[in-house]
């Protein structure tokens, strides 16, 4: 601290007017806060405030009570629905990672022109309505769906394969939705890995698998962490996919919240489940922020 002061003093002594300029600049940097204000006002009034009002229902419906949280933890079915939600999200994350990693690797190692061609392929589903994609999967996987019709015509199977309205179709739909997020996150980190690294390892005589596991993989780990967290955060809150592609045993937590609000008219319990879900996603988001900043330090 004293060091800083002496530094400033020495500077001001050298150039007396700079003190004034510095103050002006500091003032200007605070005024830019005015640029952030409109968005803040919008978010506070129509996002944060409603959220608080809604979540307060979980302890004030109608008077102060913790019964809704007690119910969430004591009726086994809700813990089970949380488990199903986490399981499906975890499988989605792993699936997206396994499928996405090689593609991201390819992205990071082809010429810019090839990447320019490949990028829209990955981005395209990102830009297509989720409903269109879910409808497409219903059309593809149904009992009278495209895949079954083709397999039946080709005499490969004798009766339709049950592919829709079960865990399989939910996972397919969710992985399909999440892949672009995973690939882009992984790619953003892989692009920053110096090529010389693996070359150096190779010149030292490391066999390819060692080059990969000892050098490349550790360097890409921030991307893996960030990608997995992002996918998991988005997946636990999923509603459309399990509702459209899921079977009777694939109920996820968002569906229960929706039904509690709209059908059971039980705002208190709906809010309690929302709160629990929010706690999960928010803590993961905080971890994500840390991972990403570590990655930034790592990458540059």
């Amino acid at each position: 601290m004293t060091e800083a002061i002496t530094q400033i003093q020495s500077v001001t002594m050298e150039r007396p007017f700079i003190k004034q300029l510095a103050r002006l600049e500091r003032w200007e940097k605070i005024t830019v806060f005015a640029f952030v204000a409109p968005a803040m006002v919008l978010l506070l009034s129509l996002f944060v405030y409603p959220l608080i009002i809604f979540l307060l229902n979980s302890v004030f419906d109608p008077a102060f009570t913790i019964e809704h949280y007690v119910k969430a933890f004591t009726r086994p079915v809700y813990l089970r629905i949380f488990r199903i939600t986490f399981e499906a999200s975890l499988l989605t994350t792993i699936g997206a990672l396994i499928i996405g990693y090689p593609v991201a690797y390819l992205f990071a190692h082809v010429s810019a022109t090839t990447r320019g061609i490949l990028l829209p392929l990955v981005l395209f589903p990102f830009w297509t309505s989720i409903l269109v994609r879910m409808y497409a999967w219903m059309v593809l996987l149904g009992n009278d769906g495209v895949i079954n019709q083709l397999l039946l015509k080709g005499d490969i199977i004798s009766s339709p394969l049950p592919m829709l309205f079960n865990r399989f179709s939910v996972l397919v739909g969710m992985i399909h939705f999440m892949l672009p997020y995973m690939i882009l996150t992984l790619y953003s980190v892989m692009a920053g890995i110096p090529k010389e690294l693996t070359q150096a390892a190779a010149s030292l005589g490391a066999p390819p698998y060692k080059q990969f596991f000892r050098v490349y993989l550790p360097w890409s780990m921030p991307g893996v962490g960030a990608g997995c967290l992002l996918v998991f955060i988005l997946a636990v809150a999923f509603f459309v996919t399990p509702a459209l592609l899921g079977g009777i045993r694939d109920t996820m937590i968002s569906q229960v919240i929706q039904s509690e609000i709209e059908d059971a008219l039980n705002w208190g319990f709906g809010a309690a489940l929302s709160m629990l879900l929010m706690i999960v996603t928010t803590s993961l988001y905080l971890i994500y922020n840390r991972v990403m900043s570590i990655e930034r330090i790592h990458g540059g």
Binding site: L43, L51, F239, G270, T282
Partner: peptide, 24 residues
């Protein structure tokens, strides 16, 4: 903090956001 805050609608479960907005 403000930066994370502005990004938060993206990672808040949409259904929860939707119910909250619906109520207000």
């Amino acid at each position: 903090i403000i930066n994370s805050f502005i990004i938060s609608p993206m990672v808040t479960p949409v259904l929860v956001t939707a119910v909250a907005i619906y109520k207000i």
